[in-house]
Design a protein around this nucleic acid. Structure first.
Length: 414
DNA sequence: CGACGGGACGC
DNA sequence: CGACGGGACGC
């Protein structure tokens, strides 16, 4: 596989933290093989593009205004991590990560996450805030989706359609226009071929226009199964305007029935390998958010670190006093006063399993005192995170990141 | 230059 | 031909 050394940079996408409460999603893409290379030009392409986008739609009177569904969660995220992330917005009443209970394993902790879950807040305004601040958040190689959960019902199950034979020029909007007469579209997607290498290069150099070759295949998820059934009846075998080929519309395979490649258990059991494999500097995301205020981006050289040459092992002066029994505590210094927990999640999430984050605040002003803590499960991932984020420019501040010491608590091993 | 929390053996 | 970022209703 090819290496992309030139993209080992972190690009901060934050608004000025001192003057803005809102933080645009921190765009991180993991260097995780070709399939993790940018696939489209910065568009969230799994959401609907029309006005019925469920992430922004407010629930009707009978529906819950506190209950959210969270989709596209990273495989490694646990329910506790999920709860911690969403608690940074407001008081969480309940949190449930859906796991595949049918997975054959003797290790209960390793049952497959189904990649989605539910968060119910006490207050509707917190739920709304969670949608505004966490929808679109990038965690590892995923962009999570946060939207109101529909009332659980049999009628909404199995409403996902597989569509093939689409004309290559058909856009996501056009696809939705074709299907929208039959019901409320929850998500739509057109599959694209991987970018050609020359496009990867132009991406890295910041060229905004990246062609994405449609595979002529897509998915439409309706709100109700009846809507999907009717769309099949009305559209299957028909020829879209401007095309000369009939499309096929049928129910999509359910995920469990497809041949799935399960992440090797070895990834959990050999964190060294997992850390090396998963590591990649988050890379630049093109223009979308760059129209705001002054931003400072630093291409931080990482030449001194190579996950393949044993540097990980070389840095094995163990900070034993930071190992609290279930994780490695990392000290993050030089945070802005307005920093929130979600910032730390965004910064450290790409490097591996994050157990908890904490922004230390002044009790009177509730402003960040300039530092915080992040606890990561695996030593190797913590080392990579520290080496990558130490010296990184967040807003107009250069972060200092290291294992936590026990300053102020002499003699105490915590 | 500066700089390392907070909860609390439980309902 | 083709199945997604594997993964949208509590598994």
């Amino acid at each position: 596989m090819k290496h992309y050394d030139c993209v080992e940079c972190l690009e901060n996408q934050f608004q000025d933290l001192n003057t803005s409460d809102t933080i645009e999603p921190f765009i991180i893409m993991m260097q995780n093989g070709m399939d993790a290379m940018p696939q489209q030009n910065g568009q969230l392409h799994n959401n609907t593009v029309n006005a019925h986008n469920s992430a922004s739609q407010t629930p009707s009177n009978e529906e819950s205004k506190t209950n959210l569904i969270v989709n596209y969660l990273p495989q490694t995220m646990t329910q506790e991590e999920m709860k911690s992330l969403f608690s940074s917005v407001g008081e969480v009443e309940s949190c449930k990560l859906i796991r595949d209970k049918t997975t054959d394993t003797t290790l209960a902790d390793f049952t497959q996450s189904l990649g989605y879950g539910f968060v119910n807040y006490h207050r509707p305004e917190d739920a709304e805030k969670a949608i505004n601040t966490l929808n679109g958040l990038r965690l590892q190689n995923k962009t999570i989706k946060v939207s109101y959960a529909r009332p659980s019902s049999e009628s909404i199950k199995g409403a996902n359609l597989y569509v093939s034979g689409l004309p290559k020029h058909m856009s996501q909007q056009e696809l939705e226009s074709l299907f929208s007469p039959f019901g409320r579209i929850i998500t739509s997607r057109i599959l694209c071929d991987n970018l050609a290498s020359e496009n990867v290069r132009s991406y890295v150099t910041g060229t905004p226009e990246i062609p994405c070759l449609s595979k002529g295949v897509g998915f439409i998820r309706f709100d109700q199964r009846i809507e999907a059934e009717r769309a099949i009846q009305e559209l299957n075998g028909t020829i879209p305007k401007g095309s000369n080929e009939p499309i096929t519309v049928k129910f999509a395979n359910s995920p469990s029935s497809s041949n799935k490649v399960i992440a090797p258990l070895a990834a959990y059991l050999t964190p060294q390998a997992a850390a090396a494999r998963r590591f990649g500097g988050p890379i630049h995301h093109p223009g979308r958010f760059n129209t705001g205020k002054t931003m400072l981006a630093i291409n931080k050289g990482l030449q001194r670190f190579s996950p393949l040459t044993g540097d990980l092992l070389a840095s094995s002066i163990l900070p034993a006093n930071t190992m609290n029994g279930s994780g490695w505590c990392i000290f993050v210094y030089n945070l802005a006063p307005e920093t929130e927990e979600s910032v730390l999640w965004q910064l450290f999430g790409p490097f591996g399993a994050v157990q908890s984050v904490k922004v230390i605040r002044d009790l009177q002003t509730n402003k960040c005192k300039g530092f915080g803590f992040v606890t990561m499960t695996n030593y190797d991932e913590a080392v990579v995170a520290i080496q990558s984020l130490n010296g990184y420019a967040l807003g107009n501040r250069i972060l200092q990141v290291s294992f936590k010491t026990n300053k102020g608590i002499p003699g105490l091993i915590s």
